[in-house]
Amino acid sequence: MKRLLLAALLPVIASIVGCNAFNIEADQPMACLTMPPQTFPVVAPSIPGAPGTFSGEIDLGISAVLPDFLVGGSPETHILNFQSLSVTLDGPPGASFVWLTGLEIVAQKGTTTPVLLVDYTPGSGTIGSTITANSLAPGQNLIAFLNNGGLAFSVSGTYDPRLFPSGATTWTGTITACFSAKVKKTFQEMIDGK
Protein backbone atom coordinates (compact mmCIF):
# COMPACT_ATOMS: atom_id res chain seq x y z
CA MET A 1 0.00 0.00 0.00
CA LYS A 2 2.83 2.37 0.87
CA ARG A 3 4.38 1.74 -2.51
CA LEU A 4 1.12 2.50 -4.26
CA LEU A 5 0.72 5.74 -2.40
CA LEU A 6 4.31 6.69 -3.10
CA ALA A 7 3.80 5.92 -6.79
CA ALA A 8 0.81 8.21 -6.83
CA LEU A 9 2.56 10.96 -4.96
CA LEU A 10 5.74 10.92 -7.02
CA PRO A 11 4.39 13.01 -9.90
CA VAL A 12 3.08 15.55 -7.44
CA ILE A 13 6.44 15.73 -5.70
CA ALA A 14 8.18 15.97 -9.05
CA SER A 15 5.86 18.80 -10.05
CA ILE A 16 6.61 20.76 -6.93
CA VAL A 17 10.38 20.40 -7.12
CA GLY A 18 10.42 20.53 -10.90
CA CYS A 19 9.57 24.19 -11.42
CA ASN A 20 12.99 24.63 -12.96
CA ALA A 21 12.44 21.73 -15.34
CA PHE A 22 9.00 22.83 -16.49
CA ASN A 23 9.03 25.61 -18.99
CA ILE A 24 7.10 27.56 -21.56
CA GLU A 25 8.51 28.60 -24.89
CA ALA A 26 7.04 30.97 -27.49
CA ASP A 27 8.40 31.18 -30.99
CA GLN A 28 7.36 33.96 -33.36
CA PRO A 29 9.23 33.26 -36.61
CA MET A 30 8.20 36.48 -38.34
CA ALA A 31 6.79 39.81 -37.26
CA CYS A 32 7.04 42.70 -39.72
CA LEU A 33 6.67 46.36 -38.84
CA THR A 34 5.83 48.82 -41.58
CA MET A 35 6.66 52.35 -40.48
CA PRO A 36 4.89 55.47 -41.66
CA PRO A 37 6.75 57.07 -44.61
CA GLN A 38 10.09 58.51 -43.54
CA THR A 39 11.75 61.46 -45.19
CA PHE A 40 15.53 61.65 -45.47
CA PRO A 41 17.28 64.90 -46.35
CA VAL A 42 20.11 64.49 -48.78
CA VAL A 43 23.47 66.26 -48.68
CA ALA A 44 24.93 67.09 -52.05
CA PRO A 45 28.61 66.26 -52.50
CA SER A 46 31.06 69.06 -51.84
CA ILE A 47 33.46 67.68 -54.41
CA PRO A 48 32.18 67.25 -57.96
CA GLY A 49 31.99 63.56 -58.88
CA ALA A 50 31.74 62.34 -55.28
CA PRO A 51 28.54 60.66 -54.05
CA GLY A 52 25.95 62.54 -52.06
CA THR A 53 24.86 61.31 -48.65
CA PHE A 54 21.71 61.03 -46.60
CA SER A 55 20.96 59.91 -43.06
CA GLY A 56 18.20 59.71 -40.51
CA GLU A 57 16.98 57.81 -37.48
CA ILE A 58 13.81 55.78 -37.02
CA ASP A 59 12.53 54.75 -33.60
CA LEU A 60 10.75 51.47 -34.16
CA GLY A 61 8.73 51.49 -30.93
CA ILE A 62 8.79 47.70 -30.87
CA SER A 63 7.85 47.48 -27.21
CA ALA A 64 4.58 49.23 -27.95
CA VAL A 65 3.59 47.21 -30.98
CA LEU A 66 4.61 43.64 -30.19
CA PRO A 67 3.16 41.67 -27.27
CA ASP A 68 5.09 42.21 -24.07
CA PHE A 69 5.45 38.49 -23.38
CA LEU A 70 7.57 38.28 -26.55
CA VAL A 71 9.80 41.31 -26.15
CA GLY A 72 9.58 42.35 -22.51
CA GLY A 73 12.27 40.60 -20.52
CA SER A 74 15.91 39.89 -20.04
CA PRO A 75 18.22 38.68 -22.82
CA GLU A 76 18.59 35.41 -20.88
CA THR A 77 14.97 34.52 -21.54
CA HIS A 78 14.07 36.61 -24.60
CA ILE A 79 15.58 36.72 -28.07
CA LEU A 80 14.77 39.31 -30.72
CA ASN A 81 16.49 38.90 -34.07
CA PHE A 82 16.35 41.25 -37.01
CA GLN A 83 15.69 39.26 -40.18
CA SER A 84 15.21 41.55 -43.15
CA LEU A 85 14.33 45.01 -44.34
CA SER A 86 12.58 46.46 -47.33
CA VAL A 87 12.33 50.07 -48.40
CA THR A 88 9.75 51.30 -50.87
CA LEU A 89 10.33 54.65 -52.49
CA ASP A 90 7.41 57.04 -52.28
CA GLY A 91 7.20 59.11 -55.39
CA PRO A 92 5.61 59.54 -58.78
CA PRO A 93 5.01 56.46 -60.93
CA GLY A 94 8.25 55.22 -62.35
CA ALA A 95 10.35 56.52 -59.49
CA SER A 96 13.12 54.13 -58.61
CA PHE A 97 16.19 53.72 -56.47
CA VAL A 98 18.39 53.98 -59.53
CA TRP A 99 20.31 56.78 -57.77
CA LEU A 100 21.03 54.72 -54.65
CA THR A 101 24.65 53.59 -54.35
CA GLY A 102 24.66 52.32 -50.77
CA LEU A 103 22.44 51.90 -47.72
CA GLU A 104 23.47 51.06 -44.18
CA ILE A 105 21.21 50.31 -41.24
CA VAL A 106 22.63 50.24 -37.74
CA ALA A 107 20.69 49.31 -34.61
CA GLN A 108 21.46 51.77 -31.88
CA LYS A 109 20.03 53.36 -28.82
CA GLY A 110 21.53 54.85 -25.71
CA THR A 111 24.68 53.18 -24.50
CA THR A 112 24.04 49.82 -26.13
CA THR A 113 26.78 48.82 -28.53
CA PRO A 114 25.55 49.56 -32.08
CA VAL A 115 25.00 46.61 -34.37
CA LEU A 116 25.33 46.79 -38.15
CA LEU A 117 22.22 45.12 -39.52
CA VAL A 118 22.19 45.98 -43.22
CA ASP A 119 24.89 47.01 -45.65
CA TYR A 120 23.19 47.21 -49.01
CA THR A 121 24.89 47.82 -52.31
CA PRO A 122 22.81 47.67 -55.48
CA GLY A 123 23.62 44.78 -57.76
CA SER A 124 23.94 44.91 -61.49
CA GLY A 125 20.26 44.19 -62.15
CA THR A 126 17.41 46.61 -62.68
CA ILE A 127 16.54 48.60 -59.58
CA GLY A 128 12.88 49.28 -58.98
CA SER A 129 11.07 51.28 -56.38
CA THR A 130 11.59 48.65 -53.65
CA ILE A 131 14.82 47.27 -52.30
CA THR A 132 15.10 44.32 -49.94
CA ALA A 133 18.06 43.30 -47.82
CA ASN A 134 18.61 40.46 -45.41
CA SER A 135 20.18 40.92 -42.02
CA LEU A 136 23.94 40.83 -41.65
CA ALA A 137 23.45 39.69 -38.05
CA PRO A 138 20.40 37.44 -37.96
CA GLY A 139 21.65 35.76 -34.78
CA GLN A 140 22.27 38.99 -32.88
CA ASN A 141 19.92 39.33 -29.90
CA LEU A 142 18.52 42.87 -29.87
CA ILE A 143 16.60 42.58 -26.61
CA ALA A 144 19.28 44.56 -24.79
CA PHE A 145 18.27 47.59 -26.89
CA LEU A 146 14.70 47.36 -25.66
CA ASN A 147 15.91 47.09 -22.08
CA ASN A 148 17.98 50.25 -22.61
CA GLY A 149 15.20 52.45 -23.88
CA GLY A 150 14.17 51.05 -27.25
CA LEU A 151 15.43 50.04 -30.64
CA ALA A 152 16.19 52.66 -33.24
CA PHE A 153 17.51 52.27 -36.76
CA SER A 154 20.17 54.65 -37.87
CA VAL A 155 19.79 54.90 -41.64
CA SER A 156 22.58 56.25 -43.78
CA GLY A 157 23.57 55.91 -47.35
CA THR A 158 25.05 57.38 -50.47
CA TYR A 159 23.55 58.35 -53.81
CA ASP A 160 24.65 59.30 -57.26
CA PRO A 161 23.80 63.03 -57.67
CA ARG A 162 23.68 62.66 -61.45
CA LEU A 163 20.76 60.20 -61.16
CA PHE A 164 18.98 61.81 -58.23
CA PRO A 165 15.87 63.86 -59.18
CA SER A 166 17.06 67.36 -59.96
CA GLY A 167 16.05 69.97 -57.45
CA ALA A 168 15.02 67.43 -54.81
CA THR A 169 16.55 67.79 -51.38
CA THR A 170 14.92 64.79 -49.74
CA TRP A 171 13.64 61.37 -50.53
CA THR A 172 10.78 59.61 -48.81
CA GLY A 173 10.39 55.90 -48.32
CA THR A 174 8.33 53.37 -46.42
CA ILE A 175 10.44 50.96 -44.39
CA THR A 176 9.34 47.50 -43.37
CA ALA A 177 11.53 45.69 -40.86
CA CYS A 178 11.00 42.02 -40.09
CA PHE A 179 12.02 40.34 -36.87
CA SER A 180 11.77 36.96 -35.22
CA ALA A 181 11.27 36.59 -31.51
CA LYS A 182 11.61 33.78 -29.05
CA VAL A 183 11.05 33.52 -25.34
CA LYS A 184 11.76 30.63 -23.01
CA LYS A 185 10.95 30.75 -19.33
CA THR A 186 10.94 28.13 -16.64
CA PHE A 187 7.92 27.99 -14.35
CA GLN A 188 10.20 29.17 -11.57
CA GLU A 189 11.14 32.27 -13.59
CA MET A 190 7.46 32.95 -14.24
CA ILE A 191 6.69 32.60 -10.53
CA ASP A 192 9.58 34.95 -9.78
CA GLY A 193 8.21 37.41 -12.34
CA LYS A 194 11.32 37.40 -14.53
Binding site: S15, F22, I24, D27, P29, A31, C32, L60, V65
Partner: peptide, 24 residues
Amino acid sequence: KGGTGTINNVVVTTGDYKVTSFMP
Protein backbone atom coordinates in the same frame (compact mmCIF):
# COMPACT_ATOMS: atom_id res chain seq x y z
CA LYS B 1 -2.52 32.16 -36.29
CA GLY B 2 -0.94 35.49 -37.03
CA GLY B 3 -2.69 38.68 -38.00
CA THR B 4 -2.31 42.28 -39.08
CA GLY B 5 -3.03 45.41 -37.12
CA THR B 6 -2.13 49.09 -37.03
CA ILE B 7 -0.65 50.19 -33.74
CA ASN B 8 0.74 53.71 -33.21
CA ASN B 9 0.68 54.23 -37.00
CA VAL B 10 2.86 51.17 -37.47
CA VAL B 11 1.37 48.35 -39.51
CA VAL B 12 2.33 45.10 -37.81
CA THR B 13 1.99 41.75 -39.51
CA THR B 14 2.72 38.60 -37.56
CA GLY B 15 3.15 35.12 -38.96
CA ASP B 16 1.71 32.00 -37.35
CA TYR B 17 3.48 31.20 -34.16
CA LYS B 18 3.70 28.52 -31.58
CA VAL B 19 3.83 28.40 -27.81
CA THR B 20 5.04 25.14 -26.31
CA SER B 21 5.21 24.07 -22.72
CA PHE B 22 6.70 21.17 -20.80
CA MET B 23 4.40 21.11 -17.83
CA PRO B 24 2.85 19.15 -14.99
